[in-house]
Design a binder for these strands. Structure first.
Lengths: 207, 207, 207, 207
DNA sequence: CATGAATGAGTCTTCATTCAT
DNA sequence: GATGAATGAAGACTCATTCAT
């Protein structure tokens, strides 16, 4: 009974913490980290300001927790794809498709996440930033390994450095997705991952 | 004489304004927009705080002016390349090379610029943002036109939508350059633009 | 049986209340009243925060109770000495000795007590302060009476107003003790009460 | 002219700073350091809150500056007396009289000062506290030297350790003055310094 | 009856902006 | 026209206290 009670409490607390994170995600994504006050988050999440500080030591902490949670989610989904034992081409196709789905289903999160990843959020993310870069690097290396294996198995022509291919694939996927966000009609990416892969797979010049 | 005097005044004033912008660029890039105070800019630029407000209506205004000036510089250089009448392949190669040079020679500006362009500095840039996106879109369209013409002239195989190729080229250039910033040894891009073009030009699969 | 049970409860409750006071004394003395939170006291005393508010209406109340308890203890010990029927000189000597022992054995309490008595802890002690001053005054009057009686019995020369002597003795004892706290080597007071009495008893000038 | 202007500015600023210190002294003395907000000081001194932070880096800084200023004033006046070349007895008499005048003319300051000196103001005064104790110790040593010299010159009987006499004199003066503050009628000290000296000078027992 | 999660008033502090000199 | 002292709104965070469980 004790356990049950404490467990319910625990679950309840986690749920509330998540509520705060959800609200914070939306606000940070809409208005930017410095333009959102703790009071605003508290009000929107329907908690007293003091309660926020039960969940997170300070504003920065809340932000870091949010970013790391998003990173966990994205990195987890991507890693799952990459580590499957599908054939190389299939893996790449799935990678692009899953990435597209992540974008479509987590728009606010994506905006915030890339603001953090690309545009240096200064002083806010010491520590977290390193971890995120490490994960991104690890994804790139995994992609490079896929290309490498594909080359070894004569599935791909060994034309370019595999790591460069990884970098190219990743950046193209991002760019197509950002473009799709701005102009969903003009860019059918998330529906059709092959658009991106075609660019990589078929050479432009001859034969 | 009046004109001459006022003109000298005018020039003087513009020079001072530019001094402020230069200082602001460095500070914003180093510490991030919200972490730089108007006092800090004034002190670093050796102006009285009040004088800053003669040049710019407020902090946001100064920021927008800075971003637009950077955009002018980059957009100008890129446009020049694109609108030359060199052969298509040469144009693309020059585009990639010039972009690389812009990165190498304007690191602070680039960091700030991309923080703004990608990681949306929210609410800060209403208005300016639209103009910048328009310019970016225009560059993409020009690139697409180059691909299109190249296809018409049978220089390129008509495999992918030209606009998608433009998007791909642009994003790959950015990604390689960012990667080069983080790890200058591991990525020879700005020295050798062909790395990027190769990915696009030679197909991976196929004879 | 009811009485017995309720009495046990009562005793238990008093013991717990005392536990809280003991913890509070240590914390207040170590860190100062405003730097100790009710949560800290509760945690240290191993009670729920709500339970504290069963014992004391609020933080100020707890503080007042603590100060009054210390006052009771000190005042009680001092009064006992003063009201004994020893000879005057012996009484004064015992007074000084007992005061020294109180200091030595209740350092934390003494620090807190004097912070309150001398350096007025403003607004915190309305009401309590009056009572404490009354007690202090009463001790001074008793000491004065001892001097007075000593004079009547020709044990002391009637040179100075007895109340002034009381004031002098009390303040000297305090000063020597505070000095001893700061520099236990340089001041042998608590070991040797006569140091203080000598100053009072033997004149510097003459006969 | 430049110099004149800047000097006037300088003087003006110092006067304003002093205004703030005066207001702060009164408020801190009346209500205690933690019970006075920066807003309250600002309002009372008729400055905007931001202006306070031009004069003092933070609340603690303002407090330290205040305490040190008081210390300077008191310590200066006392030192002047002690270092004069009057006869020993005269010096001691002047010391007691000047101390009395300081109390009478600086009641608020005295309350605050002793709150700081005696009742440990925790964490607020790191650094400043050491300096103040040093000064107090130096005064005691000077007084002890006066007693010592008086003994050498056979003005005083060598009955007690001179430093102990210094401690005694200082503490008695404080005690009489505090008593006078509480009950100005019952204690004529500041009018008649000899009351205190008599206790020290004429032995109670003897001749 | 004990508990401790939740509350929110109140604190210190920063900094964009103004305006008298 | 330049200056920089003065302003005060707004934000992060603490902690005494309450009350539903």
């Amino acid at each position: 009974m004790e356990t049950c009670k404490s467990s319910r409490r625990e679950r309840e607390k986690l749920r509330q913490r998540q509520d705060v994170l959800d609200v914070a995600l939306q606000l940070f994504s809409d208005k930017g980290y410095p333009n959102v006050s703790m009071h605003e988050i508290a009000k929107e999440a329907e908690f007293a300001i003091g309660t926020l500080y039960k969940f997170f030591r300070n504003k920065e902490d809340l932000y870091k927790a949010l970013i790391m949670q998003l990173s966990d989610r994205f990195y987890g989904a991507i890693t799952e794809v990459i580590e499957s034992d599908a054939p190389e081409i299939e893996k790449l196709r799935t990678y692009v498709r899953v990435k597209g789905e992540l974008f479509r289903n987590n728009l606010a999160a994506i905006r915030l996440y890339f603001e953090e990843t690309r545009g240096a959020r200064f002083r806010v993310l010491a520590g977290t930033e390193r971890e995120i870069r490490k994960r991104h690097q690890s994804v790139l290396l995994s992609l490079a390994a896929i290309f490498e294996r594909g080359m070894n198995r004569k599935r791909f022509r060994r034309i370019v450095d595999p790591f460069h291919l990884a970098l190219a694939l990743d950046s193209m996927a991002n760019a197509f997705l950002f473009h799709w966000i701005e102009d969903p009609q003009g860019n059918p990416y998330p529906e059709n991952p092959d658009i991106i892969l075609n660019i990589l797979f078929k050479g432009l010049i001859g034969p």
